[in-house]
């Protein structure tokens, strides 16, 4: 069943892709094939393989139980929030909390998570920014 749903999504994606390809505008430069031909081919392959998934689905993958699925969604949400606040509060503070969350969810005790977060954040800051000179997000405090 999962493969059938996946195939349905794939087919919708393929149709959308081909439609989006038809809207590509020509520019003043032209070549024989034009900018649309290759996307049409790609869209067709996407569509045909998706139809195959609907007709001949593989056996069901072992989906995680709802709790573990929520785990992944929350982790993704935390990472997105991390990206979003990165320029607001700076690398070090954002990273402490993001790391603490991840290590807590992987089984560290809450207090130790904060310690791990702090150590990771400062460690990365020292190695990658102070020693190697990579540019990291600067917050209001400059780190």
């Amino acid at each position: 069943m999962s493969d059938r749903i996946f195939g349905g999504f794939g087919l919708a994606l393929a149709i959308f892709y081909v439609w989006a390809a038809t809207t590509i505008k020509d520019s003043f430069m032209v070549d024989i094939v034009g900018p649309r031909a290759f996307p049409y081919i790609v869209g067709t392959v996407l569509g045909l393989t998706s139809i195959y998934f609907v007709i001949r689905p593989d056996k069901e993958p072992d989906w995680p139980i709802l709790k573990d699925l929520a785990e992944i969604l929350f982790a993704a949400a935390v990472m997105l929030a991390y990206c979003w606040v990165l320029p607001e509060v700076g690398f070090v503070i954002a990273t402490i909390f993001a790391t603490a969350y991840l290590t807590w969810r992987l089984g560290s005790a809450p207090l130790w998570s904060l310690v791990t977060g702090l150590a990771t954040s400062v460690g990365i800051y020292v190695v990658f920014h102070l020693i190697l000179g990579l540019s990291l997000a600067k917050g209001p405090f400059g780190f």
């Binding site: 990206c83 690398f91 990771t120 990365i124 990658f128 990291l136």
Partner: peptide
């Protein structure tokens, strides 16, 4: 539990930089 968050954070650092 310590290693994987570090991997994630280094990935972020790399792309952001």
């Amino acid at each position: 539990r310590i290693l994987m968050p570090v991997v994630a954070m280094i990935s972020f650092v790399g792309i952001y930089s």
